[in-house]
């Protein structure tokens, strides 16, 4: 903990968990989409579902989906901005069982047909925990640079990726694997120290059995 954790962060009010954390959840979906979002369908569960209007959680999520940071003063008018920029949005109050009280499930559609599907929670003080990305279990906090590698569950797929990272002098701080079924599609969540080297995802994408690779920056 440092002085700027105590006098800081600079943020848009009123609540670090309902506003700042919500912006960050939206930003994760935006990063994963890698496209201009044209439609967002957002399910809110628990306290998010009950109080989102009073806290501006809806504005915060849409702001994040449009790529804004949690200190961006346009958050307050993000819904108008979304309409101007042709981003349609819907909010649904739902109950997602066995999740943190501040959970959102975001489906995003991009203009070139890409989609992103993330589920995560705002866990306090503006911190987040993303639990599902495109239906697969992950544990992404936004505190370290994280590389998501979608791949086919085949022998050597993980070794190829981690060997390549060792060769690129990238240190892995945390590693998690999730797969839907044996031999099917799987996802590696790899937290690394520092920033990712230039061109890493392009190089990872050509490794055997890899479907896609994206870098989530610290947010």
């Amino acid at each position: 903990m440092n002085v700027f954790d105590i006098i800081g962060p600079v943020m848009i009010g009123p609540s670090s968990s309902h506003t700042a954390g919500a912006v960050r959840l939206g930003r994760v979906a935006w990063q994963i989409l890698e496209d201009r979002p044209v439609k967002a369908v957002i399910e809110l569960s628990g306290s998010f579902a009950q109080t989102y209007k009073g806290h501006g959680t809806d504005k915060a999520l849409i702001a994040g989906i449009m790529g804004m940071d949690s200190y961006d003063e346009r958050i307050r008018c993000s819904l108008e901005l979304a309409r101007e920029q042709g981003l349609e949005y819907e909010f649904h109050e739902v109950n997602i069982p066995d999740t943190h009280p501040n959970t959102a499930h975001i489906f995003l559609y991009g203009e070139s047909g890409k989609t992103a599907d993330i589920q995560g929670a705002s866990v306090g003080g503006g911190n987040i925990l993303v639990e599902k990305i495109n239906g697969m279990d992950v544990a992404y906090t936004g505190q370290s640079t994280t590389i998501l590698v979608r791949h086919y569950d085949r022998p050597g797929a993980i070794a190829a990726v981690t060997n390549f990272m060792a060769y690129s002098d990238v240190n892995i701080g945390n590693f998690r694997l999730s797969r839907q079924k044996k031999g099917g599609e799987a996802i590696m969540t790899i937290e690394i120290d520092g920033a990712a080297p230039e061109g890493l995802t392009e190089q990872l994408k050509v490794l055997p059995h890899v479907i896609s690779a994206i870098i989530l920056k610290v947010i």
């Binding site: 006098i7 800081g8 600079v10 943020m11 848009i12 009010g13 504005k59 003063e73």
Partner: peptide, 10 residues
């Protein structure tokens, strides 16, 4: 929804 510094909280 103004911009503030959490000191220590919002």
């Amino acid at each position: 929804m103004g911009k503030i510094v959490a000191a220590p909280t919002a």
